[in-house]
């Protein structure tokens, strides 16, 4: 039993970081906005890492899962607002719908794209977000390019005051829980057969097959898990925090780029990486947008190139090899 617990030690630094963020936001006035942004980046990084980090496959269309998650929550609220007495239950329905929609989309995309390897996979996914956006706009699904606005409905169901505290505080707490849950699932995968299978297929897919690993099954598992968390992040950080959804905003490839930067910066495939990457990226973006507005990408693009060429392991990857053999190694993976 004791051994079972030590397996989960690496969650300690992750959860400590999240607790610290929460306390900073709660106790230092004016910090909550920054903390909320950092939580969003950490959650998105944790979610994306389950696929990109663990399989080594690059999904350029990842933001599409956040987008459909946003739509899931938005559709639940806009369509069910008239039902009396649903109260907070509508948000639970929204989460279920968000999960369902991101699962379905990931199964559809995965069924095609995961048959393909490496570069071909990346090419297949690069159009997913755009494709889905143009489907919604072109066929005028879910109000087409006009999007959905549901501030009024949210006020109507929850009351003005509760709705406002949901948008400015509770939604961020939910993001915190989603990030923590994603970290737990990541570690659970790492410690189980799934993690071993994913490592093997990331390193050498053909050899993994010959070793008896059903690579398709494990790739799809990671893909769907990662997409579900993306759906939850979208439903919370986008739909609940800002109660509207416009197709060009929630299918913007920019967010995929941010997720990639966070995962790489922190260390792809590590547990602590997305937290470290999310914090470094979020804090630098926040201060860059104050001191050098409009220059964030210009600064981050060469940074990614430098990381890829010189530090492909990322911050946590380097920490991991530095601490090898010491007591710290049990906590940093």
């Amino acid at each position: 039993m004791k051994k079972e617990i030590t397996k989960y030690y690496p969650l300690i630094p992750v959860f400590t970081a999240y607790l610290f963020l929460f306390l900073v936001g709660k106790n230092i006035s004016g910090m909550w906005q920054l903390v909320a942004m950092l939580l969003f980046y950490c959650a998105m990084g944790q979610a994306f890492n389950i696929f990109l980090g663990m399989t080594g496959y690059v999904d350029f269309g990842y933001v599409a899962f956040m987008g459909v998650g946003t739509y899931g929550m938005a559709l639940a609220i806009t369509n069910l607002a008239h039902i009396e007495g649903l109260g907070i239950g509508i948000i639970i329905i929204g989460f279920i719908l968000a999960l369902l929609m991101s699962t379905l989309l990931s199964m559809a995309v995965g069924a095609v794209a995961l048959r393909l390897r490496g570069a071909y996979f990346a090419i297949a996914t690069i159009g997913v977000n755009e494709g889905f956006r143009f489907l919604i706009e072109g066929a005028r699904i879910w109000n087409g390019s006009e999007g959905l606005i549901f501030t009024a409905q949210l006020n109507q169901i929850l009351g003005r005051e509760a709705a406002s505290s949901l948008m400015t505080y509770w939604a961020d707490i939910m993001v915190l829980f989603i990030a923590a849950l994603a970290a737990f699932v990541t570690l659970f995968y790492m410690r189980s057969k799934i993690g071993y299978a994913l490592t093997a297929l990331r390193e050498d897919e053909d050899a993994a097959k010959v070793m008896g690993i059903n690579v398709t099954k494990y790739k799809i598992t990671a893909f769907i898990t990662s997409a579900c968390f993306a759906g939850l992040v979208g439903a919370t950080s986008w739909a609940l925090k800002t109660p509207y959804v416009f197709p060009p905003e929630v299918f913007e490839i920019h967010y995929t780029i941010e997720a990639i930067i966070i995962v790489l910066l922190g260390g792809a495939g590590t547990l602590l990486g997305p937290v470290v990457g999310g914090l470094i990226y979020g804090i630098s973006k926040y201060y860059l947008s104050i001191f050098m507005p409009g220059f964030q990408l210009l600064i981050f693009a060469p940074i990614i190139i430098i990381i890829i060429v010189l530090f492909p392991e990322g911050v946590v990857g380097m920490l991991k090899s530095r601490t090898k053999g010491s007591v710290l190694a049990r906590f940093i993976i």
Partner: peptide, 21 residues
């Protein structure tokens, strides 16, 4: 040889036992 390069020797061999039996 096609080792799973980033995994340790122990993990590599464990993969054989885990999926290949």
């Amino acid at each position: 040889p096609r080792p799973f390069a980033s995994a340790t020797v122990r993990e590599n061999v464990a993969v054989g036992a885990m999926f290949g039996t």
